[in-house]
Amino acid sequence: MLRQTQIVLWRLGAVLALALGVIGIAVPVLPTVPFVILAAWAAGRGWPALEQRLLAHPTHGPHIRAWRERGVVPRRAKIFATLAMTASTVFLQFTVTSPWLRFGAPAVMFIVAVWLWRRPED
């Protein structure tokens, strides 16, 4: 019973991450590839068939494999992510009144950007 519950939760996580990745195709500030990588990771724990489909995908499969094998993030993805985080920061400054969100979210995005740019590139 416990193993069945774990499998269902891993599958649910994989589907949720994949859905966010698909939404990211249309929403500029929501990244697609990190969510697809997350979906493959969760699928590997509860849905091996989905994991294999994601690894075999012509567009996202190479990104997933590069991340798993070498922790690689392509330069183009780094640039896009940095621009998206910068745009989000500007947007937050003009639309949010909570100082915690106006300054906290950009601080987190800055930390993510520093981490991202320290990852190896292909």
Rank of each mutant, 00 (worst) to 15 (best):
V29C: 01
F35H: 14
W10P: 01
Q4N: 12
A17S: 13
A105L: 15
V73T: 12
W47N: 03
I23S: 10
G44A: 08
M1E: 14
R118W: 09
P74G: 10
G71F: 09
R75H: 10
R45T: 04
F94Q: 12
L101N: 04
V33Q: 06
A81M: 07
R76N: 11
L50M: 15
A113F: 00
R70V: 06
I25Y: 11
A77L: 12
P31Y: 06
L38G: 07
V73W: 05
V8Y: 12
R45V: 03
A43Y: 01
Q4D: 12
E121C: 07
A49D: 12
R119H: 05
Q93N: 03
A81W: 07
T82M: 08
V96I: 15
V8H: 11
S88N: 14
M109H: 00
P34R: 04
R45C: 06
A17D: 03
I23M: 13
G44Q: 07
V29F: 09
L38K: 01
P28M: 07
L12E: 07
A26E: 01
L2R: 14
L55C: 09
P58F: 01
A84R: 03
Q52N: 11
T97E: 14
A105Q: 08
A113N: 01
R45F: 13
P62Q: 07
A56E: 12
W47G: 08
A66W: 00
A113Y: 00
V72P: 05
Q4Y: 10
R118N: 11
F91D: 00
V15H: 02
T5F: 13
A17G: 00
W115E: 02
V112T: 04
T5D: 10
L30I: 03
P74F: 10
P62I: 09
A56N: 12
A81I: 00
R11Q: 15
W100K: 04
S98Y: 07
L20M: 11
V8K: 13
L38V: 11
F94Y: 14
A87T: 08
